[in-house]
């Protein structure tokens, strides 16, 4: 569960990037976060990953209070979250299998479990035939599916996808969001940041619209684009 209460984030003195927002995302939810460039979406993601700290308010993620979380506890906290980035962030010197397996090596998982689990998630994203390929040998869509498999491999409670369709064509975008929806159906909470309103309208669900550091819309949409009217 994600719960932000009256949260503000200030990078520079007096300059709030996030201004007293309240957001609650229940376990098992699928939430789109939209907003224009500079609206505060990236800062919100960094906040959820404890890459930046809130200057005010309380931040609870997966049962961890991020305002009081000590630095040495951050790795353990992050193991409860899977992250997918727009630029994939795959390690070019590792194969598809190694890119995914290394997440489990980080947490010292047994070798037999790594083999079993990695094979399972590779199958889930449909890349069984690419296990020995390197990222440079894959298309943008395939790379993003590897990134998705990597985010899923340690069975996270929360999956954060930061513009996951930003570097792929529209057809693949639908495929990727479809995969995220499927993952959500299995019980994983998914937060997807995007600026592609077409995708949001197509898939529907809960949507949070952020503008100038504040939440200007937070509701369920079902194919309509009424939320856009409130976007500045």
């Amino acid at each position: 569960m994600v719960e932000l209460k009256n949260v503000s984030v200030a990078y520079n003195k007096g300059q709030n990037v996030i201004k007293g927002i309240d957001i609650k995302i229940e376990d098992g939810d699928f939430t789109f976060i939209v907003g224009a460039s500079g609206a505060g979406k990236s800062t919100l993601i960094k906040l959820l990953l404890k890459e930046v700290d809130a200057s005010d308010g309380s931040v609870m993620v997966n049962g961890y209070n991020l305002r009081t979380l000590k630095r040495n506890r951050i790795p353990k906290f992050r193991r409860t979250i899977g992250v997918v980035f727009q630029d994939f962030r795959l390690i070019p010197t590792m194969t598809v299998y190694e890119n995914i397996a290394f997440v489990l090596r980080v947490i010292n998982a047994p070798r037999s479990y790594i083999k079993k689990r990695v094979s399972y998630v590779i199958g889930l994203v449909g890349l069984q035939n690419k296990t020995k390929s390197y990222p440079t040998e894959l298309s943008g869509g395939e790379q993003q599916r590897v990134a998705l498999a990597r985010a899923l491999v340690n069975d996270p409670k929360l999956l954060i996808a930061d513009e996951p369709t930003g570097n792929v064509d529209p057809e693949l975008s639908h495929e990727i969001v479809g995969l995220l929806k499927a993952i959500n159906q299995c019980g994983t909470t998914v937060v997807m940041v995007t600026h592609e309103h077409e995708l949001v309208k197509h898939f529907g669900g809960r949507l949070i619209n952020i503008n100038q550091g504040t939440v200007i819309y937070d509701d369920i949409i079902d194919g309509d684009d009424s939320y856009m009217e409130e976007d500045v």
Binding site: P75, R78, V83, F102, V106
Partner: peptide, 12 residues
């Protein structure tokens, strides 16, 4: 990049 990714997936 490798270090950065390790941090995101919870490496100490």
């Amino acid at each position: 990049r490798e270090i950065n990714i390790m941090k995101y997936v919870g490496a100490t």
